[in-house]
Nucleic acid binder design. Structure first.
Lengths: 224, 224
DNA sequence: CAAATAAAATCGTTGAACAATCTTGACATA
DNA sequence: TATGTCAAGATTGTTCAACGATTTTATTTG
């Protein structure tokens, strides 16, 4: 009974598989993805693979150049700034307008607690993924499927950038307690304060990521 | 020199062509799009058409059912509520954080003036499209490519819903002056007031659309 | 008239083919 | 040596034909 009953379409499955590899860093920014090579590697036809490419291109994880092929998207300072702008717009508003009994609040708290436990174990991978869960839950406060889907996409793009950065401790550890403060303010009904705290959080996080990114980028300007 | 030098890829062109037909109402909600029929009708291969279908499905304009084909998305009360939730989140925040000298402000004003001119001519189509321009300009205040792209998608979905509604005068005419008031507040640096006015606008517009939509929907519950 | 079954249509996916375009490398020229 | 030309070679863009899988329609049967 562990198998999938509903045979999902092939292209979305391929896209998911590729997305995982992109986020895991198995496929590196700037790298070209050969249709011929990948289609035999993944044991599917070129046509099916091209459908998957189109999906991931639309998500911003791949870049498509006509008659030249698809490449893993190369994060840039501009894209990071853009992504944080999106996050501030959506997350802060979701938090400001949230009502404190929303089911997503429980998920926020749970993510905070799990992140704290992982932090004591120095399990930075889990700290990072619980941080993602926390922010996805914030967006979920707005009760909008479309915002959720859009945010998932933005988060995947951001994780592509994170892949370039070396130090997950620096990247995620400092924010566990800030997250805790946010959820506490929210639970207390202080949505405006929670939102303000989140904005400060995001600004600080953006600065950290940009600084780390610039250090990489100036050594290796074109992302090869 | 009027021709396109860069031969654009086929799939995006097909997607654009279909998108236009969807928004124009040539393809009706719930209608099934046969791969075989459409591919001969548009004189392209089934494979290319399928790539275009994937794009439009990801945009929310088409719905894909495994082994059954693609259908024109059927707007629902839930989808309209969701779309307006997105609009309030993004547009109000963009306006609240805007700075009044942003180039998009000029476009907002221009759209208002054109809409007013069109209103005196009772050219409701232009009134509607200038209204779309106005709101796209608001989102542009946030200076984010990703928000712009996302909003364009949401707007297309909303226009699909509008296609079902009969009366463009009722739908757009009352909002020309509200738009004017918003741009004036913004130009005066009163971003908070502009944002509040927009929120009231959107709530009222949502109510109008939902009311009109329910009248249609109860006569024709499952969209043909 | 309902249920079961057979036939037809449609989608899902593959593989091969060929045109269009880009890349590479050899070669000639200044 | 540096540079520009030009012909392979490789890769993408697109089409076509085929066939298994699934759904829909039509037919038969009880």
């Amino acid at each position: 009974m562990t198998e999938q009953d509903t045979t999902l379409a092939l292209a979305p499955r391929l896209a998911e598989e590729l997305r995982d590899k992109l986020i895991a860093g198995e496929l590196k920014p700037g790298q070209r993805l050969s249709e011929a090579a990948l289609s035999v590697g993944m044991d599917v036809s070129r046509n099916s693979l091209r459908e998957a490419f189109r999906l991931l291109t639309k998500e911003g994880l791949l870049r498509h150049e006509h008659n030249r092929g698809v490449f893993v998207a190369t994060p840039s300072v501009a894209s990071i700034i853009d992504i944080y702008r999106v996050r501030r717009t959506i997350e802060c508003q979701a938090l400001a307008k949230a009502y404190p009994n929303h089911p997503a609040v429980a998920r926020m708290r749970l993510a905070v607690e799990r992140a704290r436990a992982a932090r004591s174990d120095k399990d930075w991978g889990t700290v990072g993924s619980q941080n993602m869960v926390f922010h996805a839950a914030i967006v979920d406060l707005a009760d909008s499927q479309r915002l959720n889907a859009f945010y998932a996409q933005i988060a995947a793009e951001l994780r592509l950038s994170f892949g370039l950065l070396a130090d997950p401790e620096l990247l995620h550890a400092p924010y566990v307690d800030l997250n805790a403060a946010i959820v506490e303010k929210l639970e207390a009904g202080m949505t405006a304060e929670a939102s303000a705290a989140l904005e400060a959080y995001l600004t600080q996080s953006e600065r950290t990521v940009l600084a780390a990114f610039s250090r990489i980028d100036e050594r290796n300007p074109s992302g090869k």
